[in-house]
Amino acid sequence: MALDQSFVGRTYPPSRPYEVAREKIREFAEAIGDDNPAYTDAEAAKALGHPDVIAPPTFVFTVTFQEAANVIRDPKLGLDYDRVVHGDQRFAYHRPVRAGDRLSVTSTIEGIKSLAGNEILDIRGEVSDAAGEPVVTVFTKLVARAAEAAEGE
């Protein structure tokens, strides 16, 4: 079933702020095995010109993907969530995410396409801080596979 094209351009209300914790950054950095001191040592981060420890570049996806999941679970959109795989991912950074940030995500459906039975959904997440300043723009392409088994991600 083709998705409702009228959802293109729809923007969802900003998410509840996510507070970036120093220990959460450490946990994520350790999970990816990255020992860059900018993620765990405030002095090392300051030496690079950051006010506090910063998060690895893909950390912010852990914040935005919850929002993207809410969008694709919108029952009116009619997407079969069980068939969804991650197609593309892109980040455009205004500045690195850092400890103490209170991040809010505003998600917009940028595109809906049908291709060979697959439904392709482009979601843009604008991530801003407590002052409303932009931090990173997160572009996520999700693919709901045609009925047969999925491959990818």
């Binding site: 860059n36 900018a38 993620y39 690079l48 010109g49 950051h50 910063i54 690895p56 570049p57 893909t58 795989v85 991650h86 197609g87 593309d88 991912q89 892109r90 980040f91 455009a92 950074y93 500045r95 690195p96 572009f139 491959e151 990818g152 991600e153």
Partner: peptide
């Protein structure tokens, strides 16, 4: 400096 990253993207082609 990881903060030097301005953009980063990829397509997931194979698992």
């Amino acid at each position: 400096d990881p903060g030097a990253l301005v953009e980063y993207g990829a397509r997931f082609t194979k698992p």
